[in-house]
Write a protein that binds this DNA or RNA. Sequence first.
DNA 1: ATGAGTTGAGAGAGCGCTCTCTGGAGTGTG
DNA 2: CACACTCCAGAGAGCGCTCTCTCAACTCAT
Lengths: 341, 341
Amino acid sequence: MTMTQDTGGPRPVPTLEMVAALAGVSRATVSRVVNDSPSVDPELAQLVKKAILALDYTPNRAARSLVKRRANSVTLIVSESTSKVFADPFFSTVVQGIALFLTDTEYTLNMIISSESKPEKTRSFLLGGSVDGVLVVSHHSGDHSWTHLSGSLPMVFAGRPLVGGGEAYYVEVDNEQAAYNATRQLTTSGRTHVATIAGPQDMPSGIDRLAGWRTAVREAGLGESLVEVGEFTVDSGTQAMQRLLDRDVTIDAVFAANDQMAAGAYTAIQGRGLRIPEDIAVVGFDDDSFATSVTPALTTVHHPIVELGKKMAETLVNLIEGRPAHRVTCLPTSLVIRDSV
Amino acid sequence: MTMTQDTGGPRPVPTLEMVAALAGVSRATVSRVVNDSPSVDPELAQLVKKAILALDYTPNRAARSLVKRRANSVTLIVSESTSKVFADPFFSTVVQGIALFLTDTEYTLNMIISSESKPEKTRSFLLGGSVDGVLVVSHHSGDHSWTHLSGSLPMVFAGRPLVGGGEAYYVEVDNEQAAYNATRQLTTSGRTHVATIAGPQDMPSGIDRLAGWRTAVREAGLGESLVEVGEFTVDSGTQAMQRLLDRDVTIDAVFAANDQMAAGAYTAIQGRGLRIPEDIAVVGFDDDSFATSVTPALTTVHHPIVELGKKMAETLVNLIEGRPAHRVTCLPTSLVIRDSV
DNA sequence: ATGAGTTGAGAGAGCGCTCTCTGGAGTGTG
DNA sequence: CACACTCCAGAGAGCGCTCTCTCAACTCAT
């Protein structure tokens, strides 16, 4: 029973000073070793390192942060109204990418839910010096209310911000092109009544994916009227598909602006006794867990979401450290063919 | 071109000292006002508050943290091998609950992905003084390798830790009872070949839910052999269901230890031309987004996941601040009847 | 051998805040 | 009126670290 139960109390936290004393050098030297400054006698450095190990020393972040005026932390803002997006695979996957990238850096990720009722709280937190940069994964256009902070703090957005986009740094995919390709898959395989379940029209991804669909159907000489707007949720997808089928029973294909709405569309389609893909072909967007959880497996646009998160974090860190950074990063997509077309 | 490219420089960050100067009082007094100490002349306090507003002052976290030896931050550990759980609604929803609770406190949430290859990095981060407490949402039993830290740092787990559980603080639901109830729903409605897709048997939730199923089928006088183990993922659910159907085609009900595996089971069932619930009734566990995204909608155990996250955070904060905290919190569940039974 | 140039370690002044300690002003009692 | 008390604001010492400045000890050309 090794019960490491030392009451948590007495553990004396080792400081730079203690390491210096043990190694018989000055604090400055220890600091130099810790931050591996080149101008330290290798022999002395070795001595110091031994002392660090012996004491199990870890630099105190707060102290370092205080003098360096750098917190080594970036904050992810989630707006309260959007907090349900946690259930959204897109959101969580972006976060995963961000966290993955930051693991290999000196930066720490923290996350706040900003309540619309007291924006000052969020504001003061961000400006309180404990945050070096901000990441915004937005779902509603209102989430871009943070754009104005980008003068005082480095910020990177997931997707082109709807407002203030002229100055903002962001990472995205070419939604329009990807949606075009996805729709082409439908129009070139003999489908003649190609509908779409579009995303919210106050979000760039919603707007651009609809535009891509439009271009493809127009190019194929098909009608552009079979559009219903959803909210990127499963339920809204079901409802949009219901409306679509109520309007036109001859629909034989549908492009949904994300996989969740596609999954919702499945419910509406199968609920009417129609078969996928025989009666109606379905193509989604994102290639998230919903794409493979439905039957038949969904053909969809692969959205490199983890990569997107990584790039966001990378861009932000570059910005913070004053290194050159691309204002706009555009990631490639590809169409994943499964059983729904 | 407003190019807010001011090199980050000119914004002079207001300090306590500046507020004191403006208000014509000492630093100590401003500090007292900021931390609303009772022993301050209301009139003076008003003056100071005005100065704070005028300067748009925000206390520097690092400085405060340095002297108070308290970072006001809690860390969520995610192990690298588990980082794919970001896509898991359970995980993201717990995080949501945690973040939601912390929003109303002085604490900040940060998240690290600990790489198994360099555990010292994680360890030194946790012990570096910038973390007041730790939250662990585990999926593999290996994630409990952090239990040994609980002597040096307050920790709260999601679910009973497999090892070291005797001392650990955690929040959970009564998995066994809930699984029992869910299975009863099947056995009492005339189903006689009730199988289960169990979760990993190195996780308490996997073990306990299987135990609950066992009790219910035994009680109903049914066989206890129709068990296949999955990994809480959609795919593993499909495969487990395949194996089950290969073993016994007379199965007329299945209890899946989470909704994702239930969704996977749908694929296998419907792939064989069987109908839900006519031929096979399905009950899941968690009541997450998968439950409503499948057709027919899944009957499942409602798992109060947001609540669980909130409770975890609450317990941790209590622990940090030395207030009494329940070592074990057990949350209630309920069965949500939908269309799959 | 001498002065300039180079290298590497120590001294010490803070970073912005909290908190104990001190002391001046006001209140109440003998 | 002197004494003890209470109450509240200021002074000042750090919290653990970084970083500039200083200076001792060399190296090397003259």
